[in-house]
């Protein structure tokens, strides 16, 4: 009896302990999100704002070919940049995990975070522009005679996106590789696998959770990127984030901006759910560990 009361009390206590978090999330996450969803189903006001009438026009407007091509561009740029980020991160993290100067390398990855992202983007503009450092260097070395157009195109958007979000890919992958038992690779080689096969068959499956996290951590912010295409992109490199800002500030079609935001949120949520599933499997594995420990103890007793 006493136990049941305790259990009930601990549930109440649990809720009360987590209430600050609940309140915080409600105010700063649930309420704004609800407003956006609500706006996306309303009619647009003449000079911005919304009219309190139900409409799905905003969602129909998304299918405007101009917008669709931007959505498509956003998608392929994000997918490509994410893929390149991951491909760079795996060898980087591997080297970091095996290095003796791990702390230093980790610091080098993290330190750029301390600088404002706008400043870092302007640094890239300086670096890539026609009169910029890179072109000047190549010209003075006599490798090229005319400046290369390195900026205000898809190339520069992808390059800077990769630069901005690389740490988000490196950190989770580094964490799993750091915990990875490298003797497994020896074992795979010993059992007949080539270097490449042992990487594919043993390393990748065991660092999968880190790769998934990295995928989501880089893809989601890239998909919603705004300042990078705005500052280093060309006329035709606008992404969904830029549409939203334009719809709020210039065209003043708030429901359309809201509907795009809802789409972005849904895409992000799919990603988050995917990560949660992978990590839930890991929690399950930890539980399994506990069970195994108990069976082992029993066995030891026998």
């Amino acid at each position: 009896m006493g136990r049941r009361i305790d259990k009930k009390r601990s549930v109440i206590l649990g809720y009360s302990y987590s209430s600050p978090m609940g309140i915080w999330l409600s105010i700063f996450f649930v309420v704004p999100l609800s407003i956006i969803v609500a706006y996306s189903f309303m009619k647009k006001g003449l000079y911005g704002g919304v009219i309190n009438e139900f409409s799905i026009k905003a969602y129909k407007d998304i299918f405007n070919p101009n917008f669709l091509s931007t959505v498509w561009r956003t998608l392929w740029i994000s997918v490509l940049s994410t893929a390149i980020c991951i491909l760079i991160s795996i060898p980087c993290s591997y080297a970091m995990a095996r290095s003796k100067r791990q702390t230093l390398l980790l610091a080098l990855v993290i330190i750029p975070f301390w600088t404002n992202s706008l400043i870092r983007i302007y640094a890239w503009i300086n670096f890539l522009s026609t009169e910029g450092f890179f072109n000047n260097l190549l010209m003075s070395l006599g490798i090229i005679s005319e400046p290369l157009s390195l900026i205000y195109n898809h190339f520069s958007v992808i390059l800077v996106l990769i630069y901005m979000y690389l740490p988000f890919a490196i950190l989770p992958i580094f964490t799993v590789i750091d915990k990875f038992d490298f003797s497994l690779l020896d074992a795979a080689r010993d059992l007949g696998a080539t270097k490449f096969m042992s990487f594919i068959k043993v390393m990748i499956p065991n660092i999968k959770s880190g790769i998934t996290t990295a995928l989501v951590f880089t893809f989601i912010p890239m998909f919603g990127a705004y300042e990078v295409p705005l500052l280093v992109g060309g006329m035709d490199s606008a992404m969904v984030g830029n549409i939203i800002v334009d719809q709020v500030q210039k065209t003043r079609n708030w429901p359309l901006a809201a509907s795009f935001s809802v789409i972005l949120t849904i895409v992000s949520m799919i990603g988050v759910i995917w990560v949660m599933r992978t990590s839930r499997n890991e929690v399950k594995m930890k539980k399994d560990n506990k069970i195994a420990e108990e069976t082992f103890k029993k066995e030891a007793k026998v």
Binding site: D186, L191, P205
Partner: peptide, 17 residues
């Protein structure tokens, strides 16, 4: 290389996948 040798190893920490 290890994969071409006709030896196999039982590792100290087992190294099971």
């Amino acid at each position: 290389p290890p994969e071409k040798r006709s030896s196999n190893t039982v590792f100290q920490t087992y190294a099971l996948f």
